[in-house]
């Protein structure tokens, strides 16, 4: 058994039976962007552009650090970006340019 096998063998989302904290019985209403992100997932699934299982696999592929540090919908949108690149639907520079264009709609912060 090599030192790192366990990292490959157990997906970051496979948490059944692992040690965990008490449950925080909390909920939050979705941010508008989170709701749009969920709607995006459904529309991508309807059009068979990204199916639900691909989304799950895409989230797993982000790796343990991102899975643990990004919130639920943050993981989804990062996974969608990667899957769209893999399918040659978008390129990384397409998305980077568009993100800059979206950001430019707000005044830059003054420091």
């Amino acid at each position: 058994m090599t030192a790192t096998e366990h990292l490959v063998k157990r997906l970051p989302n496979d948490v059944g039976g692992t040690p965990a904290d008490p449950i925080q019985i909390a909920d939050h209403p979705l941010e508008p962007w989170e709701k749009r992100c969920h709607a995006l997932a459904d529309v991508l699934d309807f059009h068979k552009i990204i199916n639900t299982e691909e989304k799950r696999r895409g989230v797993e592929s982000l790796g343990t650090e991102l899975v643990n540090k990004l919130s639920y919908y943050e993981r989804w949108i990062a996974a969608f970006a990667n899957i769209l690149f893999q399918k040659a639907i978008l390129s990384p520079s397409d998305l980077a340019r568009k993100m800059q264009e979206v950001e430019a709609r707000w005044p830059t912060r003054e420091k």
Binding site: H38, L40, F46, L70, L90, L95, E103
Partner: peptide, 30 residues
Amino acid sequence: YEVMETAVRELLIERRFFEAGEIRHQIEVL
């Protein structure tokens, strides 16, 4: 991440993978 979501959505709409109305409608469904 909101910027990312907006950018992905707008690019896919521009490239005609789906229409903006479909996102709005699915929000109503949800």
